[in-house]
């Protein structure tokens, strides 16, 4: 996908994203290395990246573990039916649990899809995930009107999201 026409990104931000989306260089002064590549002052690069962190355009800077390699081989999408007027409070609590990686409110489609709270759960076995589900059941208590677990059977497609380099003007 390309985002070259978006207003809320300036050209330099776009270049910074293109230069860092595959990762930070493993050298003692990584920001200097990127700045050199972009032909800008390191301080300017760091200013822009700090600004993107502040606006949330950069979620965080850090390591992304391969959860399968760490032994987390049981990964379920759990879906919960909770009252709309309680969802903010419950969503915050659910998202704070250490075994939840993503937690969102999504729309229901009644009657066939009553679930409005989604959380990805990760464990080292299906038994472990089942225990964690019980923790969530306890946490949601009387507010939970039903839930289901959807284990993935097969990855049918997975492509990285890549921004294009800004095109020269």
């Amino acid at each position: 996908m390309t985002l070259d026409k978006k207003k809320n990104m300036d050209d330099l931000d776009r270049k910074i994203i293109a230069a860092t989306q595959s990762g930070l260089p493993l050298v003692k002064e990584p920001y200097q290395a990127i700045a050199q590549q972009l032909n800008i002052e390191p301080e300017l690069l760091m200013q822009h990246m700090r600004a993107m962190l502040k606006t949330g355009q950069i979620r965080r800077i850090g390591a992304v573990p391969n959860h399968y390699k760490l032994g987390y081989t049981a990964n379920a999408m759990s879906v919960w039916n909770v009252p709309d007027d309680k969802i903010y409070e419950l969503g915050q609590q659910l998202g704070a649990l250490s075994f939840v990686s993503h937690c969102y409110e999504r729309p229901r489609f009644l009657p066939e899809w009553p679930y409005n709270l989604f959380a990805m759960l990760h464990g080292k076995s299906k038994d472990e995930v089942a225990e964690k589900v019980q923790e969530v059941v306890t946490l949601l208590g009387e507010h939970c009107a039903g839930y289901e677990l959807l284990y993935s059977k097969q990855i049918l497609k997975k492509t990285g999201l890549r921004l294009k380099e800004p095109s020269p003007k």
Partner: peptide, 14 residues
């Protein structure tokens, strides 16, 4: 590790 570096929020980028 699958990656090390900044994690961008594509939605916030438009």
């Amino acid at each position: 590790l699958t990656r090390f570096g900044p994690m961008y929020d594509i939605q916030k980028l438009g």
